[in-house]
Design a protein around this nucleic acid. Structure first.
Lengths: 235, 235
DNA sequence: CGGTGGATTGATGAGCATCAAACGATGTGG
DNA sequence: CCACATCGTTTGATGCTCATCAATCCACCG
């Protein structure tokens, strides 16, 4: 099981730079900075290599994280190894924030990744005196809930093609630079995010390519050529 | 579409009493009381008939609710009428709490239902001065997120039988009285919650019945006779 | 330039959806 | 009070979507 999901640890960083810098501070995506900046908390940086675990499911939630560069997947496993990825975390995104003492999903670096982190306890403490911080923590969790609710609709009711179209539009929104997106994750990750197999994901992408809706520059660099038609497929 | 989902409005209350009283105040389930009691907010009561809409998707979130008696479904629709129910709300449960100004799922009474409600604005105001209230609102949203994360795993990766087993154990935990559960919702609701058709739900229940894992007293009154075997099926 | 992990493509089949009909329970009107 | 209408549930027959198994293919890296 672990074997099935664990690919080549100890590999060097890919030479093509995938995953950009952290989002500018104006944006909704840098929710974390709004806290640490405001309260003047000490934020440390730490790096993880590709496929390295950041924390495990049900592990004590000692830290809260923010992606600086790289990408992270949060997931749950069934006992036989089936995996559901609940979210991808990209530069600027906070993750690992819990209102209870344990993490509910595991987290791994998808590629070499640098994070900023603060102790959960210090955030809790700040929230206990500063109501603005408390409000911000709630907003982060509420944002994750919104994503999860949208994703339940996708997993429960959308067809394979609709799921892939939704995924492409989400990634386009979140990480496209100059109309091109550089996906940090492999087809298996995408499948485990969308509740599909990697083969089904690949077939859907090939079909969209054949219809001219997207273009490839290598399997992980995708250009959307017709967002309107993707929106239609999205249902 | 609306037609497909709307069944017999204006029907009388069922004579079998389904859905119990509100949970005692000690419990984790009465999260709402902990707030309204603490802050001394004015909570009104209101009733909805079976299948009546409480609020629609993307409607302004003016109130926050708590089920007193009855049951509520929260759901999203695709444009062609496919529906995903994100959660069932039972007596004691809060619902409709948002950190943004609009509801992201619609809510309907499953059976005749009474709710307690408070204005969202007054909760926000209380949270602005009382950090305990702010903490409680966060905890409610975090609890909903946890449920959604578990449900994503179910929708993305579990088989039909595993989904039904998980559902039965959830409902057993939440509404069983004296070993018996009186389900307020129909097979279609269960299917739309589990990402299945009503026929598949019915077949799974029949199979569990044939194996002696559960007993029926009418389609909606179920007794679990072997929770251990259900847990095994749950994967 | 060869090696390796990831991606694509193909062949086949299983699980669940769909379509259809019968059954059952609940409430109504004669 | 019983026959009937109605809505919900069960059960059956069939087919489609997507999973599985398998074989290249391709990009990236040493």
């Amino acid at each position: 099981m672990t074997q099935m999901l664990t690919q080549t640890l100890n590999t060097k960083t890919m030479n093509t730079r995938i995953g950009g810098q952290i989002a500018p501070a104006h944006s909704l995506t840098d929710q974390f900075g709004a806290i640490t900046g405001h309260v003047g908390l000490l934020a440390t940086e730490f790096s993880y290599r590709k496929d390295e675990e950041i924390y495990g499911e049900d592990e004590p939630a000692e830290y809260v994280y923010q992606v600086v560069t790289g990408a992270v997947r949060s997931y749950k496993l069934l006992s036989d190894g089936r995996r559901q990825i609940g979210a991808f975390h990209l530069p600027g995104d906070a993750f690992g924030l819990e209102s209870v003492p344990a993490h509910r999903l595991a987290a791994e670096a998808i590629i070499d990744t640098t994070v900023r982190l603060v102790k959960r306890a210090s955030l809790e403490k700040a929230a206990g005196t500063d109501v603005q911080v408390a409000r911000k923590l709630w907003a982060i969790t509420a944002g994750e809930l919104r994503h999860a609710e949208d994703h339940m609709l996708l997993l429960g009711r959308k067809t394979a093609m609709e799921r892939v179209a939704t995924f492409l539009l989400e990634m386009d929104r979140r990480l496209a630079v100059a109309g091109m997106m550089a996906l940090p994750m492999c087809r298996r990750d995408i499948g485990d995010y969308l509740g599909l197999t990697l083969e089904t994901v690949s077939r859907a992408l090939s079909q969209l390519h054949a219809q001219g809706i997207l273009g490839f520059s290598g399997a992980r660099h995708i250009v959307l050529r017709n967002r309107q038609r993707l929106h239609n497929l999205d249902s």
